[in-house]
Design a protein around this nucleic acid. Structure first.
Lengths: 232, 232
DNA sequence: CTACCACTGTGGTCTAACCACACTGTAAGC
DNA sequence: GCTTACAGTGTGGTTAGACCACAGTGGTAG
């Protein structure tokens, strides 16, 4: 077993045993190195991996943002991993989109009426109604979808859904230039968002799921994802 | 931007541009360091991250297994990430199971009759019928489920499904000791497997999905996952 | 009381070694 | 000629020790 894996194992045990919890701080790199009788390099390699996994965040200096602290951001970590695999051509973009449709439809169907996340979603829609800027709109759009997924109450589905979106964000972003009429598109997306939220609040899960599926597929189709004109 | 991120970016670009493909070899660490004008340490940190992501595999010595080569193993990488997040208590095991049910049901419903993966699945079932050893059985069981997911033709769903299972493999493994009667359980699981495959081959996707959901939920429930008696 | 600044501890980076490993080519011995 | 032994080469793995930038802390000069 390689040295950094030993460190990794040690840290994972600290987490499993509850000796290290969310928000907690790892010992300094030098201290860990001495404690485990390994070089600081090996400790750093382990920390790097955990950072890539979204399990810790490393901050220099001193104070609250300093040191290596335990966080919980699986979404971005999974997203990066998927993005790399898309780059190797192992994961087709179409499969990513299809999976996203699957997860988000399920979440929409399962969203619990009255969940706080739905109020947040509604607030986001209001902001979007008055956002002409394309980047602002897309950022709010992302948060809306995450909020909707949250309302289903499954952390894993939320994380995966966010990661799928993130994995092809840049890719899809380049394609928004293909859109013939952004105003028309954004108006349509706004209307669809409201319809989805309405269906969820009306407790009509089946309809909400259908609307979400059509919403996502419609966007990617219009942007040209899957039409093979993209990569080059 | 940190140095190792620069290296990461460079490698990702090589992949995106197709200059580096699956099975391809990265330049040696020393060569990359010189080319990018960074230290070998930074190069190694980047490689470590890619290794954790299942994008590359590093091998010492010389020959076919040597050097850092591009692979495509998102499953194990995603699995490790999820496992760590389960350790931090951020991802509940119940959510993992629920998501696995979601993905596998979908895959069973979408499995294409006549897919080669189904033949493999059938072959695995035969082997399982004559496997009394519990570990052998579980290994074959894992491969059966992967084969089934494969038959749906979505790489992302396959990878995620495998990673979900892997994330709680150790955790669930400890619980098999809770089973009152392994022979009875394994006989039941065998029968369920055959029924699932039969439903898929009969093109009855809905029934296959229901059977898969019941199969998975039944196993974890019997093993005691979610009953809070586990972690401690 | 305020402004400044040295101090301390954090992660970030680099250099220059040495190791284990696995193949390759060559030379020695049969 | 064939086989065996072994030095050579290039790979990742690991280490020690140094220096940097950063951000709070606390003392000190004004």
């Amino acid at each position: 077993m390689r040295t950094h894996e030993l460190v990794l194992q040690w840290i994972e045990k600290q987490l499993s045993d509850g000796d290290l919890a969310l928000g907690g701080r790892l010992p300094g790199e030098r201290a860990m190195a001495e404690q485990l009788q390994v070089s600081r390099t090996s400790v750093r390699e382990a920390v790097r991996i955990l950072e890539a996994m979204g399990v810790v965040r490393a901050g220099v200096g001193s104070g609250k943002d300093a040191g290596t602290v335990v966080i919980a951001e699986p979404g971005s970590a999974l997203g990066s991993t998927l993005r790399l695999h898309v780059a190797t051509r192992h994961l087709p973009v179409a499969d990513i989109v299809e999976t996203r449709v699957l997860l988000e439809s399920w979440a929409a169907a399962r969203a619990k009426v009255g969940a706080p996340a739905l109020d947040e979603a509604a607030a986001l829609l209001e902001q979007m109604d008055s956002s002409a800027d394309i980047e602002t709109f897309l950022a709010l759009d992302a948060r809306f979808h995450v909020a909707l997924a949250h309302a289903a109450g499954n952390t894993v589905v939320s994380a995966m859904m966010a990661s799928l979106r993130g994995a092809i964000e840049d890719y899809a972003g380049k394609l928004t230039g293909n859109l013939p009429d952004w105003k028309a598109t954004s108006d349509r997306l706004r209307a669809e968002h409201h319809a989805i939220l309405a269906a969820v609040n009306a407790n009509d899960g089946g309809r909400a799921a259908d609307l979400v599926a059509a919403h996502i597929q419609g966007f990617y189709r219009e942007a040209g994802v899957g039409s093979q004109t993209a990569g080059e």
